[in-house]
Design a protein around this nucleic acid. Structure first.
Length: 269
DNA sequence: AAATTCTCCTGAAGGC
DNA sequence: TGCCTTCAGGAGAATT
């Protein structure tokens, strides 16, 4: 499931192939993803990509007349293929650049392709987002302020995009383990010092995962169809019943905010 | 206002 | 072997 490191891996992978390239055509095979997909052939043919950026888990393809906003949902990936490559099931959208093709594949269709006429950062889906986790704007103080008076589980706080973006289930789970904080702990009962540590661990785990090309659990692949290599470095996510890599206790899971959450009962409080 | 629940979808896994 | 049920999961929407 693409989280920030997987989206950033995708951005870095596709940018060299499509930045400053001109769209020669587009195909929309499935016009209904999370929201309706615009008529991309009409919208983009003849227009040139003026930048490939990322905000939270959204990819932004800049054009002179607006921006294409792409979200990979939980099962999406973008690959660069030869133009004319036969589509497989769930290959929903192609953007064609001469002899190459940027193809969106998304079995569960939780992804989205949106268009913003003006500043994409002012789009309703992006305008209320919190700071980037790898920026200086994100730190323990921000978490501590957001947690004031909140009974919500600290893991849910960390995954709330209005507070900080890009931290999904995998990396929230891992960062909480490294910070020694129980995922279900009430936010208001986490000290400033422990939030400092948590923010630091979020940055470390995300940066490290980007270096490894992201986490591949089932189906994440980069623009060339290759998996990421962070999965082997996970300490708790997906390791229920297995021994903690630090203390040997059996990793447990429980529901936190309707989401499966793994933790070490001895290392996290 | 904050917290919780529901929703979209498919593939994988488990039961029988 | 194969059909049926269950469930995960990002994040917006609806509800409490």
């Amino acid at each position: 499931m693409p989280e920030l490191p997987e989206v950033e891996t995708t951005r870095r992978g596709i940018a060299p192939h499509i930045d400053r390239q001109t769209v020669s055509g587009a195909v929309v095979r499935q016009a209904m993803l999370r929201w309706p997909v615009p008529d991309l052939a009409t919208l983009l043919t003849g227009h040139t990509v003026r930048g490939v950026e990322r905000r939270a888990k959204y990819l932004l393809l800049r054009f002179d007349h607006g921006s294409l906003i792409i979200h990979l949902g939980m099962s999406g990936n973008l690959r660069v293929l030869a133009a004319g490559s036969p589509p497989r099931t769930h290959d929903h959208v192609d953007l064609v650049f001469g002899n190459r093709c940027l193809r969106l594949h998304d079995p569960r269709r939780f992804g989205a392709v949106l268009w913003a006429d003006g500043d994409p950062l002012k789009h309703p889906r992006l305008r209320d987002l919190g700071p980037e986790p790898l920026s200086d704007a994100f730190d323990g103080g921000l978490l501590h302020r957001a947690a004031r008076g909140r009974k919500i589980a600290v893991k849910s706080l960390l995954m709330d995009g209005r507070i900080v973006v890009g931290v999904g289930n995998i990396y929230a789970t891992e960062a909480l383990f490294h910070a020694g904080i129980h995922p279900a702990r009430a936010s208001q009962r986490v000290s400033h010092a422990r939030f400092d540590r948590l923010a630091d661990e979020v940055k470390k785990v995300l940066a490290h995962a980007i270096e490894r090309g992201g986490t591949t659990l089932r189906d994440f692949v980069n623009e060339s169809g290759e998996p990421g290599y962070f999965a082997q470095e996970l300490f708790v996510y997906g390791r229920a019943g297995q021994p903690c890599k630090v203390c040997g206790s059996a990793i447990r899971t429980r529901q936190v905010g309707q989401r499966a959450s793994a933790f070490c009962p001895r290392c996290q409080h």
